[in-house]
Design a protein around this nucleic acid. Structure first.
Length: 163
DNA sequence: TTTACGATTAACT
DNA sequence: GTTAATCGTAAAG
């Protein structure tokens, strides 16, 4: 099979009420996708150089989504290595910008439906242990423990979630 | 039209 | 640990 993929090991939640969320204060042209139906992909550019991917997880007009922060590469690792230019598998997608670069996600994919080509989405095959911790990289509402990562995973974007 | 800022990363001291 | 890179979006004039 071609393409790339892996196991999502870290996410962050964003709601309309959240001052740190793009959807805070209502829809704008930029975050329009975030208010779309659940199951779509919201892509935005950060600091002009990085792409970040969100999975919309609320009905149309709500504006809630989860930011995909880290991924454990399992499919097409070589492709990702080539794209990222790094050897260490743990660095391939350990961060929002890195994740999108490794998967080749750009504005082209904004608004696309997850679970449909070129995307595929599968439920966890086994029980997983998730830990909540404060979010990273934002300047507002940093107290909210809405960062969810796979317990014990060495692929998360930050080594020490500070349990 | 102009200006300020960001859900980041990589490089440097 | 600190700082620069880089550009689309939003808010102000």
């Amino acid at each position: 099979m071609e393409g790339v993929g892996g196991i999502v090991v870290e996410t962050e939640a964003y709601e309309p009420d959240d001052p740190a969320s793009h959807s805070f204060g209502g829809p704008t042209p930029r975050n329009a996708t975030m208010f779309g139906p659940a199951g779509t992909l919201y892509v935005y550019r950060s600091y002009g150089i990085h792409w970040c991917a969100n999975a919309v997880c609320a009905d149309e007009g709500v504006g809630a989504a989860v930011l995909l922060r880290a991924l454990e590469p399992t499919i097409g690792v070589d492709v990702m290595r080539a794209r990222r230019g790094v050897e260490d598998v743990r660095l391939l997608a350990s961060g929002p910008g890195r994740l999108t670069q490794a998967l080749g996600i750009t504005a082209e994919h904004d608004g696309r439906e997850l679970g449909k080509p070129p995307f595929a989405l599968d439920p966890p095959r086994a029980a997983v242990e998730v830990v909540a911790s404060p979010r990273v990289g934002i300047t507002r509402a940093t107290d909210l423990p809405w960062r969810y990562s796979l317990a014990g995973s060495s692929f998360v974007s930050r080594p020490r979630p500070r349990a």
